[in-house]
Design a protein around this nucleic acid. Structure first.
Lengths: 218, 218
DNA sequence: AATAAATATTAGGCTAGCCTAATATTATAG
DNA sequence: CTATAATATTAGGCTAGCCTAATATTTATT
């Protein structure tokens, strides 16, 4: 079994690979984990010996298949626990991250599969992130950043890329919720503000910064 | 916040104090934790500095009030998670211990109180052990070992002192379940076997060894 | 009370996972 | 192409929590 530290590295590497393509840099990992580069070099050497990551000198490193499977398992656990915390225990979507970060390290395949069934096999977590099934397969769903859409486009708000409490609370405040159908009414040339029309004819204006953290599907 | 190692010590000390009175010996703790005595001495010195335990040279040590509160908090978490695993996820009572041992170290007061509410404030865990409330108070319930009862006594089977899979499976096999009303029909002089009559007029015979791990109330 | 047995403590080591400081390598700019 | 900046690695240290071996202290036995 992997240690919590290792699991955190695996998850972080996976996410960096998803976001920035193939190879990941020591510095990038150090930054997202809040750990010094020397320590990362250290740890990666160990994980490399365990065949969790493969790395080419000065090109960076990436997960091996074994590492990828492990990473997806952790992401699955994290997201399922988030669903549990929100759907069953009544936490708000901005409160669950830290607790799920702990719960994701509980070791028991049986536990997580039973939890999955108990939650009725959810496909996404409370932030709209996809949850891989027991085999590690994600139900593919294409989504784009609101920031990339042109006036007139429409779709459904299905996810966020910023999971901070500050951001999530802001969305709650302006009344934008996961699942809302939206239409881009206007994109202001001058400051890139987006004017959106929501299903119930309400309209909201969000900054480019916000639009850049909202995922739209369909 | 306390480390998992510390929490395991706290819980073990608490249980030893419950079982064997006031002072706990280094050796006893080493034995139940499966750790060498020298390591225990080490750790206790640290916990002593943190005022979690108080120890008098060569008399042993005991929890301080602070340590006791912490220990009860961990026990509360362990038992609530066990209820969750059995009642909600469908685990059997003999399967939950190891997973609960991990879950009990998740740090979040809010989580555990919400879990408690979600489970509808259970008073006992799947093995009949009492669950302290959020203030650390146990709903007192007097129980005695079946082994101490005389023929003719009756009561309700409300707990076990042996949590091993082997033992719990044996009880399942002979059809003895938590909550069953029982009456001691006979105690064989020769081998101390107990003949019990269950509510639905079934009768079962258990050895002294088994009787010594069954708690009877009322 | 003297000795053996049991119990406890000290001393020195080890690993995981982090740190700082120093050095090496690679990329970028003039 | 060289100087500087950015990135990566090595070397040496630290803490938590464990270990073994050696030593000390208690308790029990004769």
């Amino acid at each position: 079994m992997h240690s919590s530290a290792e699991e955190n590295y695996l998850k972080a590497i996976y996410k960096l690979q998803e976001a920035n393509g193939e190879m990941v840099a020591t510095s990038a990992l150090a930054q997202v984990l809040g750990i010094h580069m020397a320590s990362v070099t250290d740890m990666l050497k160990k994980m490399s010996n365990k065949k969790l990551v493969a790395y080419q000198k000065s090109k960076g490193f990436k997960l091996t298949e074994k590492g990828r499977v492990a990473a997806i398992g952790i992401i699955r656990k994290h997201r399922l626990w988030e669903v549990f915390l929100v759907d069953k225990l009544g936490f708000r979507w901005d409160e669950v991250h830290d607790i799920a970060e702990q719960l994701e390290h509980i070791h028991s395949l049986e536990l997580i599969d039973k939890l999955d069934a108990y939650l009725d096999f959810p496909k996404t977590d409370p932030h709209g992130d996809p949850i891989p099934d027991a085999k590690g397969v994600f139900a593919i769903s294409k989504s784009v950043l609101l920031a990339s859409l042109l006036p007139g486009s429409q779709g459904k708000f299905t996810g966020v890329t910023d999971h901070s409490s500050a951001f999530l609370n802001y969305l709650d405040k302006i009344g934008l919720s996961l699942g809302d159908s939206i239409k881009v009414k206007e994109v202001e040339e001058f400051d890139k503000n987006f004017t959106l029309v929501l299903k119930g004819k309400k309209s909201v204006i969000v900054s480019f910064k916000v639009a850049n953290s909202l995922l739209i599907s369909e």
